[in-house]
């Protein structure tokens, strides 16, 4: 039995690449490849010159890299030295753009939280792209990690904690609170700090905690792949279509059916509340989906 190593030793090992956490976590999940395939027969002998180049390059690499890093830092320091002072009023960023967001933001968008007004109304196209970045990442991870449906594969993945009583009890108390808080943050996004992204991340964390404590199969009775997909994709469709409508109306000078309402009310700020909800759904689904994919190769 190996002596337990102190934290300091483990840190030193980690820095020296000797201590490989992935071995402990991912080891059993990925057995070593039996044997790497043989080189193709028609392959020519390795280019000796290229190998020599490579070796020289490898020796010179740390020096070159350090030089490049140093150059970049000096360059950037010179650049930021020229910037306007931090925290002062009247800098270039404190201009007519910020002025209108602050002065007219509440009347124009109906959102008391001006940040929500900026990202979901003034600059909504950015945010539309941003939620699709999440979608893109989810699909990319699906491509990379999705395993074929095979009943032989253990459903519970590898990191299954034994159904520890402390964990399950704590989770059964915490998960409802976490999800409720997430909902509050989403629905309150136009009134105070929060919004779809933060609330969605909180709900996603709640779902992950639930899956860790009770296993995936129990969550799956309520949220299986089919419903997961439909919910997430419906939210994205709603987002794209409603924003397309409002962009179209805006560009052609038409009035939308969404009005800012009375700022401060829960049902106000036009599209911002439903958009926050849609974003929240997308984020929560993505977080849970990513966890589940990394954990066991499927959603």
């Amino acid at each position: 039995m190996e002596r337990k190593r102190s934290l300091k030793e483990r840190l030193r090992d980690w820095d020296a690449d000797a201590f490989d956490l992935t071995n402990e976590i991912a080891g059993p999940m990925h057995p070593a490849p039996a044997a790497l395939p043989e080189r193709p027969k028609d392959a020519e002998p390795e280019d000796a010159l290229a190998a020599e180049d490579f070796r020289v390059l490898r020796r010179a690499y740390p020096i070159l890299a350090a030089l490049l890093g140093l150059m970049t830092v000096v360059f950037l320091l010179v650049a930021v030295f020229d910037l306007p002072p931090f925290g002062a009023a009247g800098t270039p960023t404190d201009n007519e753009v910020a002025l209108r967001y602050v002065r007219d933001g509440m009347t124009e968008t109906g959102a008391v939280n001006l940040v929500a007004g900026v990202i979901l109304d003034y600059r909504a196209f950015d945010t539309l792209g941003e939620s699709h970045v999440l979608f893109t990442a989810l699909v990319a991870v699906l491509i990379l990690l999705l395993k074929a449906e095979d009943p032989a594969i253990d459903d519970e993945g590898t990191l299954t904690l034994r159904q520890d009583r402390i964990v399950t009890t704590a989770a059964s108390i915490l998960v409802p609170i976490i999800v409720l808080f997430g909902l509050y943050v989403i629905l309150n996004g136009h009134l105070g700090p929060g919004g779809g992204f933060s609330g969605g991340a909180i709900i996603g964390a709640g779902l992950i905690l639930y899956a860790v404590a009770f296993g995936f199969s129990r969550l799956e009775t309520k949220l299986n792949l089919g419903s997961f997909r439909i919910i997430c994709l419906a939210a994205l469709w709603f987002y794209s279509l409603s924003k397309c409508y409002s962009f179209f109306c805006g560009a052609n000078g038409l009035h939308t059916v969404f009005s800012p309402g009375t700022p401060g009310r829960i049902l106000s700020a036009g599209l911002i509340l439903p958009l926050n909800a849609a974003v929240g759904i997308v984020v929560a689904c993505t977080m849970y989906g990513l966890f589940s994919l990394f954990q066991r190769g499927k959603i």
Partner: peptide, 15 residues
């Protein structure tokens, strides 16, 4: 109030 734009941009960037 401060400028809301950088906060919004950072939010996008984090995602």
């Amino acid at each position: 109030y401060g400028n809301p734009l950088p906060a919004g941009l950072v939010l996008t960037g984090i995602v």
